[in-house]
Structure formats: structure tokens, C-alpha cells
Write a protein that binds this DNA or RNA. Structure first.
Length: 273
DNA sequence: CTAGATGTTAAGGT
DNA sequence: CACCTTAACATCTA
């Protein structure tokens, strides 16, 4: 149990934008253009707006063609123009393996390919879900999501913060305003930008907003490069020190915690004003 | 045994 | 209305 690689694997997943990007890359590298033979549903509660029968009917004999990523969602285009919707919530992930490999406790839905491999949707806490939709645009509309956090341009980003009267962290995490940022990465983005999580958006300067925008890209690019494993981020990042009793990598004072929007925020009161 | 963790949603308060 | 907090969902760890 002291093997660090093994320990790391056991850390809970917290899928935000970088994690979903990694799932996309993983699916692209393993599961495209292979005929789906059968689908095994271990838990039907995981479905949203679809059923095991509908899913089987739509997928059997077909292939995953391409994927796209928006906010915390991953979409898989099927060669019959349907889209599989994957949301990972707090503990969802994907695993590709030989399809004779034994079922693991949290395997929920299994796509068995004719090549003898399978893609498994794994979700310990059952809060994630799988959907099947005909129109991607229609689905996105119904979610009322804001622009994708990584792709949003400066002008739209600025407008969001100029309009919001809430706190900066709450705004960053609000999927209806910006899609893809969760509790963990919002802490990092705020730290990198030197903005206090509770600071009202109305008090942000233009420079603050530009700083936040720039740091979303920086942090997401960096996290994606490190396989979305916060433990592998540079030591200058807050996430490495994000625990009780942790110390700010910049000024070495104690990191504080506060409950914001129902989540625990970690930040440095000296470096984030 | 309890508290706390993660994301979303609904409900209730200011 | 726009914003906030809380609780619920499921399950595991400290």
C-alpha cells in the first residue's frame, strides 16, 4: 500500500474540464471505428433520457466515430448520427480492457467490441450519467450551459463577469455561465490570478478579469499535459498544497479554507486579494 | 459511528 | 429576479 503509483490510482476522481479532456483522448486512442458487438448494463439508474433497450438498439453493430468535449461533458458521435452523452460527475471514468476481464465493483455500462476489447463506464458514486441524443445542439440548449471554459473568448468572458453580481468563485463554477470549471480547478485559477474567491465580480478590475481568463487556459493546458493529475502539477501550484495545514507555495503562509457555494474553497489570503 | 468529499439539481431564504 | 445556502443523491475514506 505504500506504492505511490498505486496510492495515486486510489485517489477519488474529480472530473472537471481537464479530466474530461483526458477521457476524450483516452476514448479516441482506444475505442473509435470498432464495431460494437454487445452492451452490458450493470446498473440502469445511470441512464438519463434513454434506456438499456434504446441504447442497445442504437449501438449494436455500429461504431463510435468521433468525440467532442464541452464543459464537463463528453459526446461520442455514433456512425448513425446519434450521440452518446457522458457525464462523469464526481467519480466517473472510462476503462478500456480485454473483454474477458472480470467485472470490477463500479463498472456500470460496458461496450463490448468485436475485436475482443471493451470500453467500460465506471462510476463509484452513481451520480454520473449516460444519455443518447439525436441533436447535439438541442441537448446543449436544454442544459443551458455557458460557453466552454477553455474556448470562450476574451470579450464574452469579460461580459459574463461584468454582468454577474455574485462572488468570483461562484461565478467561475456556475455551469450556466461558464462550462467546465469545478471546485478544485476554480481554486487553482483564482490562486494563479491572485483573486480572492469571495471577491464580488463587480469589484474586479479589467486586469483581474483578463488575468482569470488567461489563467483558465494556462491551468487547463498544464493540467491536461499532466494527465489531469493534480499531484503532478508544478510545485508552484496551489493544488499540490491543497489540504488541511497546507502552506502557500508563494508566500509560505498557511492556506485558509472557507465554505463557498456549498464547497470548500482553499486559498491564500495574503496572495489573493 | 460521523463528517467530509466530489457535481448537479431543487428548494427555500435574502 | 439574481444571488445565496442547504439538502439530497451514492458511496467510500479518515
Amino acid at each position: 500500500m505504500t506504492n505511490p503509483a498505486r496510492r495515486r490510482k486510489e485517489l477519488p476522481k474529480m472530473p472537471e474540464w481537464p479530466d474530461v479532456e483526458i477521457f476524450k483522448q483516452y476514448l479516441d486512442a482506444t475505442s473509435l471505428h470498432q464495431k460494437i458487438h454487445t452492451i452490458t448494463v450493470h446498473n440502469r439508474r445511470i441512464f438519463k433520457d434513454t434506456s438499456p433497450d434504446k441504447l442497445k438498439q442504437a449501438l449494436r453493430g455500429h461504431c463510435f466515430e468521433s468525440t467532442s468535449h464541452y464543459g464537463k461533458y463528453l459526446f461520442v458521435e455514433i456512425d448513425n448520427r446519434y450521440y452518446l452523452v457522458l457525464h462523469f460527475a464526481m467519480t466517473g471514468s472510462l476503462r478500456y480492457s480485454k473483454n474477458n476481464r472480470k467485472k470490477a465493483p463500479h463498472d456500470r455500462v460496458v461496450f463490448n467490441f468485436v475485436n475482443g476489447y471493451k470500453l467500460v463506464y465506471v462510476c463509484q458514486r452513481m451520480l454520473g450519467y449516460i444519455g443518447l441524443v439525436k441533436s447535439l445542439a438541442g441537448f446543449l440548449e436544454s442544459c443551458e450551459l455557458g460557453p466552454d471554459a477553455f474556448s470562450v473568448d476574451n470579450k464574452d468572458f469579460k461580459e459574463i463577469f461584468r454582468k454577474s453580481r455574485g462572488g468570483t468563485k461562484s461565478t467561475l463554477m456556475n455551469q450556466k455561465l461558464i462550462a467546465g470549471i469545478g471546485n478544485i480547478y476554480s481554486d487553482e485559477i483564482l490562486f494563479q490570478a491572485g483573486v480572492n474567491p469571495k471577491k464580488q465580480c463587480s469589484k474586479l478590475t479589467d486586469a483581474d478579469i483578463e488575468n482569470l481568463h488567461r489563467n483558465i487556459k494556462k491551468v487547463f493546458r498544464q493540467a491536461t499535459k499532466r494527465k489531469a493529475d493534480p499531484q503532478r502539477l508544478p510545485k508552484s501550484y496551489l493544488l499540490i498544497h491543497r489540504r488541511k495545514g497546507g502552506v502557500c507555495p508563494r508566500c509560505h503562509n498557511k492556506i485558509e479554507t472557507q465554505r463557498i457555494a456549498g464547497r470548500t474553497a482553499f486559498f491564500c489570503p495574503k496572495c489573493q486579494k
